[in-house]
Simulated scan of single mutants.
Amino acid sequence: MVKEKSTANAAIDYRAIVRDMAPLVASEAREAEAKGDLTKPVVDIFLESELVWFMAPRELGGGASSIRTCIEVLEDLARSDGSTGWSLMATSIHTLYASGWAGDEAIDAMFGGGRRAIVAGMPGPIGKATKLADGRFRGSGRFGFASGSGYADWFLAGMTLSENGEVVRDEQGAPATVTFYLKRDQIEYVPNWDVLGLRATASNDFVVDDVTVSPDFATNVRTYTPLRGPASYRMGGLAFGAAGHCAVVLGMMKRALEEIAIIAAGKARLGYNGPIGSHPMFQKDFAVQEAAYTSLRSRVIEIFEELEREAEAGNPPTPAQFARMYQFVSWVHEVGPEVVRNCHAWAGSAGIREPSVIARCLRDASTARMHSVADPIKMVNAAPHLIEQYADQARDRG
C-alpha cells in the first residue's frame, strides 16, 4: 500500500491558483475550442499547481478539499472558460473516485512510486462485466463522454455485473455495478468529439474490449464506504459529481453576467436613449438574472455542506437528502442556461461576431444542459420526498 505523503499540500490555495491562471485560460480558450482539447500551457499549470489532485486524499498527495472549496474552485475556473472548468471537474472528480474507492493493488499502480494518476472516463454502468471463478472480472463496452481524456493516463469504466448469465442484484434489488480502473494502453481511444459547446473538453469515446482485471481494479464507486480519504467521502462519489456539475454552470452564469454588464455599458440600440445598460428595462432584467445566480449559488453550497457535515458525522445521505440534491442539480441546469441565454440576447451583434466570450458561454451552457445529470426526471424522482416533507411539516404544526 502507498505510504502517506507529505500533507504540505493542505495549505495550497487552489482558488488563488485559478485566479492567477485566469488570463492564460482566457487567452487559450479559442485555440482550445478549435483543437477540441485543452492546450498544453493550461494542462501544464493543472499539473504543476496540483489542481488535478485538489480533491484526492492527502495520503496520496492530494488536497482533500472541502466540498465548498470544490465548488468555488470549479466555479472560478468555469468563469474563465466553461470547457476548462468542465475538464478539471471531470478529471479531478474521477481521480477522487479512483483514489477513494479503488483497491490497494490499483492504488499502488496509480499512485505508488511517486506517481499520481490523472483519471478520466465514464463511471456510469455502460459496459457489461462478469465475475470469474477465480474472483477476477472480465468486461467490455463502448463508453462516451470521457471529458478531460486528452491529458488522462487512467480511465474509469462503469460496468453492470452479471454472473452465470444473470444480472447480479444489489441489496436494494437494483443491478449491481463495478467500476474498472484501466491504464490508457488497456483501452482504445476514439477521438470523435465534434459538438456545439464544451468543444475543448475532449469528451471522446473509448472502448474496453474483453479486459480482465483483479478485484482491486473493479470496485463499486457508488457506495458510501470509501477505502480511504477524508470523512467527507462518505457522502458518496456521486455527490461530488453533482456538486461539480453545479459549480461549472454557476461559473458560466457569472461570466455571462459580467460580460453583458460590460457590453451593455457601451452598446447603443435603436429606440434606447443612450446605452442599453442605463435603460430601466435592461437594469430590471439584469437584477432578476443576478438574483437567480446568487440565490442558486447560496442554496447549492448550503445543500452540499449539509451533506458533508452529515458524512463527517458518519451518516450517509438519506433518500430525501439525495432527492433534494438532485432537485437542485436539475434546477441549476434549467435556470443557468436561461440566465446565460438572456444575457446573450441583450448582447446583440456582440454575441454573434467571433471572438465572443458571451457566445461561447451560451454554447457551453446549452451543452451542459443536455447532460444526464440534469435530466428533468430528477425533479420527478425528488417530488415524492419533497411532498412528504411538506405534509409532515403541516401535520406537525397541527
Rank of each mutant, 00 (worst) to 15 (best):
C343Y: 05
V195A: 05
N192C: 09
A350M: 14
G173F: 07
F54W: 09
A218G: 08
G113E: 06
A106Y: 08
A313M: 00
R68T: 12
D44S: 15
F137E: 03
T367F: 01
E163W: 02
V119P: 08
Y97S: 12
A359N: 12
Q321H: 06
A256Y: 02
E171N: 13
V178R: 15
E163A: 13
G103T: 10
C361Y: 01
R136A: 10
G139L: 06
V2E: 04
F206Y: 13
W101F: 15
A383D: 13
S87D: 07
G236E: 01
N315H: 14
A292I: 12
G112H: 02
V213L: 01
I262G: 01
H385E: 10
S6H: 09
T95P: 02
G236V: 01
L227N: 12
L227E: 11
V168F: 07
G165P: 00
S214Q: 09
A90P: 04
S366D: 11
L51G: 03
G100N: 12
T84N: 11
A120S: 15
T201D: 08
F206T: 05
G112A: 04
G113L: 07
T7W: 05
T95H: 02
E188H: 07
H385L: 05
N9S: 15
L132Y: 01
A129Q: 10
R15T: 13
T219R: 11
M281C: 08
E171M: 09
S140C: 09
A261V: 07
L24N: 03
E334L: 14
G274F: 00
R353P: 00
D108T: 11
A109M: 04
P376T: 09
F137S: 07
V248Y: 02
V167L: 14
L132W: 02
E75V: 01
E334G: 05
E4L: 11
A120D: 03
